[in-house]
Design a protein around this nucleic acid. Structure first.
Lengths: 174, 174
DNA sequence: GTCTATAATTTGATAGAC
DNA sequence: GTCTATCAAATTATAGAC
């Protein structure tokens, strides 16, 4: 990976912290120290915390959309697997929450543009699950799967038991 | 309801705020203003924010345990209904997150005693679902139901669509 | 783009009077 | 138990030099 712009480094640091502590759980100074610059330089790239958080949620959503790919190109069942492994990787590789899961839980405390970006994230995943062939089993709604995935992240982390994620997200008997 | 102790009023105010904004989303001064006292008086009852939050999570868990009752006394299927309506009421009556769902998502940012209290909450619900007769359908694990409920709260609130909660939590076809 | 400097406010917390 | 007063630190944010 070649040099990264300061802007990207700031977003990376912010994402790490936000996915652990939520919107009010990190500060401009935290990010400045993570990146090795001063907090006023962070403000140069993101004038307000709300703009930073919105950029964060939108970049997160874009990255997820790229990983998922076009739902029309998928073999039956592949859509479900992709979405599940997205969340599974958040737990096992990143050891962090889903950014929009955490922000969504804090919805009432977010600047409206951030809340809107979070809503778009959920809309994207639901749309993907509806369009991907056989992404969900008969009788299981896209919202049910997505809810399970967000909740499974919380559960597995709160109880410090990664196995709980698989237990909570295993495909139901059909 | 007769007079409430200042301690209880503080916990009530803290619960409302924490269930909207999370651990870092409210301050001693916020609570003091809500209750009509000074922040130093809040500190008299709860010396540190961690102690306040732990008391909050423990009281929340106790109240939930009371609402659920003894799982051995239940008719088949009643256990599931009680747990589901617990979360449904959080959404439709309180218009708030589950306290421990939000705290659980913020686990890494919590003082350890608070994180431990949150873990106890999830342990209690899982234990209840395991013991209550026919609380979950064949093939659905207690962790899967609990994850769905926490996630459904997030989803329904993030998309501002209470109907999504029912869609996400409807019992799967058996 | 990054810095120094600083403003204005908020935060968690304490000391001591009543 | 609640108050006044206060503190040290942290917070979001801005002005202006380089």
């Amino acid at each position: 990976m070649p040099d990264q712009s300061a802007r990207d480094q700031i977003l990376d640091a912010a994402e790490k912290r936000a996915r652990m502590a939520g919107y009010h759980g990190f500060s401009f100074r935290d990010l400045a120290e993570d990146v090795g610059i001063k907090s006023s330089s962070v403000h140069y790239h993101f004038p307000t915390k709300g703009e930073l958080a919105e950029a964060l949620a939108r970049r997160y959503t874009l990255r997820v959309a790229e990983k998922l790919g076009d739902p029309d190109d998928l073999a039956p069942g592949a859509g479900r697997a992709r979405v599940v492994s997205l969340f599974r990787d958040a737990l096992l590789i990143d050891d962090r929450m889903c950014l929009c899961g955490l922000f969504g839980a804090e919805r009432d405390a977010l600047p409206p543009p951030v809340a809107a970006a979070v809503a778009d994230f959920f809309g994207l995943i639901l749309d993907y699950l509806e369009r991907a062939p056989a992404a969900v089993r008969r009788g299981e709604k896209p919202a049910a799967l997505l809810a399970r995935l967000e909740g499974a992240l919380i559960l597995a982390r709160a109880l410090n038991d990664p196995g709980l994620f698989d237990e909570a997200t295993a495909a139901p008997d059909s």
